[in-house]
Design a protein around this nucleic acid. Structure first.
Lengths: 107, 107
DNA sequence: TCTAAATATCAACATATATTGATTTAATAA
DNA sequence: TTATTAAATCAATATATGTTGATATTTAGA
């Protein structure tokens, strides 16, 4: 029960749905790029990434001081369906400026 | 987006998951029977039934002063998956005392 | 070792949500 | 009309959650 409640609670916030959709579209992204593209302050973003990770949606890879987040794979059936549902919401997500710039956060 | 958030928010409460599972198992049930079987006070139950209904999971039929709630049918793909997931949680739900007593709330 | 950068965590506050008991509404029957 | 019953709603309160700015942690490089 607890993990189910955690999962759906993680989905029930607009900010987190946007993060999921962005990572679903653009793949592995470091926190500072997410900050730029999603226009969120760092502590807010960090909090939501943690919630999504602990709910089983995301994984992290750390390289030096960077943290790269991506959709966990494979996702179970329910989480896959949830992601599918989110895709169909038609959320506007920011386009990447230049793919070469990604992961090079000179803020 | 709003209806998606409403749906997952409706799922992110243990009380509502129990109500859904009960109705999934036992079918159409009146509020006063739900009160008895789920051991909830009336205002609490009424609140959660409303949330589940407005999130698209339940429907109501009124007969006189009684209100019978049941799982809405057909459910869309995502809500069906959610219900399926809830079935697999292995939640203990109360057994009915006698089927003939259901809908005859002499509290 | 010292500094800087990226990320995580904390503290304070505001908003949202759940619970309870009381009140209101609606339908039925005397 | 009055009384009764089922259900919905409201008011008060407690708990949970989201946001922000400040601080702590971790790693890399000078």
């Amino acid at each position: 029960m607890d993990i189910f409640l955690k999962s759906v609670a993680a989905l029930s916030d607009e900010t987190r749905v946007l993060i999921l959709r962005f990572l679903d579209e653009h793949g592995r992204t470091c926190v500072c790029d997410l900050q730029n593209y999603l226009n969120m302050i760092q502590s807010r973003l960090s909090r939501h990434l943690k919630i999504l990770k602990e709910a089983g949606f995301l994984r992290v890879e750390r390289r030096g001081t960077w943290a790269y987040y991506s959709i966990r794979s494979p996702l179970d059936r329910f989480r896959t369906e949830a992601l599918q549902e989110i895709r169909h919401l038609g959320i506007e997500i920011p386009k990447l400026k230049k793919s070469s710039q990604i992961g090079e956060c000179k803020l």
